[in-house]
């Protein structure tokens, strides 16, 4: 298979970027999207040109490093997967594929397709935890949790922090990301003590980082590689309201 790529190239945080065209040749359908980029980069290095910089690591859809928009969609044309899990069999031979970084004011571009998502870390630092120190905790089975609740908490906790929800949202809202953590800990008995403070602190930090508001388009859920449900946002809003009402 052969493809034409239009890839966003940007030297650094302060410079202006632009699209450049490349051709990807001799690509096989079983190659992953990142392996296709590896092949393009291999050719670029052989021509002594700088390869396309992109974040990647586990290449199995769990580390959350992938941060690119492919053919106009976060993580490309697939449901429930990160860019590293996208295979070239999802494209048609000869396709023109546009590749650009996730766009959001809170995610500045560092270079080419690499973005700075440390805003997510700062939101977590503001309240995405249960305040327990190491040691001195009760036996694990001393805290029974109904299976349905544990499963629901797990589904929210499966978030990989990639930022596709922000990139897909026209408001660049981080609501789904924040809601996933708020929801996980609001569902579980361990999270009850700091329930009020947590949702307030995390949402305050979210606003501070420059993410937009949620206007219920559900684009986040549609593009989430872990298919995290927007019902978590509803839960977060209820938590926030409850906290505000004291």
């Amino acid at each position: 298979m052969n493809f034409t790529l239009k890839v966003w190239r940007q030297k650094n945080r302060n410079s202006e970027g632009r699209f450049e065209s490349y051709t990807a040749t001799n690509i096989t359908p079983d190659m992953s999207f990142l392996e296709m980029l590896d092949a393009v980069n291999h050719d670029l290095v052989e021509k002594n040109q700088e390869p396309i910089a992109f974040d990647h690591d586990c290449r199995e859809g769990i580390c959350g490093s992938c941060g690119m928009f492919i053919k106009g969609r976060a993580h490309g044309p697939q449901k429930g997967g990160a860019a590293c899990q996208l295979h070239m069999r999802s494209f048609v031979d000869g396709d023109l594929i546009t590749v650009e970084p996730f766009r959001a004011q809170a995610f500045p571009v560092i270079k080419d397709l690499i973005i700075d998502r440390t805003a997510f870390d700062r939101i977590m630092q503001a309240g995405g935890f249960v305040s327990v120190n190491t040691g001195g905790v009760p036996d694990a089975n001393a805290i029974p949790i109904p299976k349905t609740i544990a499963d629901e908490a797990f589904s929210a906790a499966a978030c990989i922090g990639c930022g596709a929800c922000v990139a897909a949202c026209k408001n660049a809202s981080a609501s789904l990301f924040v809601a996933a953590k708020v929801s996980q800990l609001a569902l579980l008995p361990q999270g009850q003590q700091e329930r009020k403070e947590r949702v307030e602190a995390m949402l305050a930090q979210m606003d501070k980082e420059g993410f937009g508001s949620c206007s219920n388009t559900y684009a986040c859920e549609a593009e989430c590689p872990k298919e995290i449900s927007v019902s978590n946002i509803a839960r977060m809003n209820r938590e926030y309201l409850k906290a505000a009402l004291g």
Binding site: T134, D139, A140, I143, F154, Q190
Partner: peptide, 12 residues
């Protein structure tokens, strides 16, 4: 015990 106290959602 530690992980459960942190809110790790183990299978139940």
């Amino acid at each position: 015990d530690q992980c459960v106290a942190q809110g790790v959602p183990f299978a139940r």
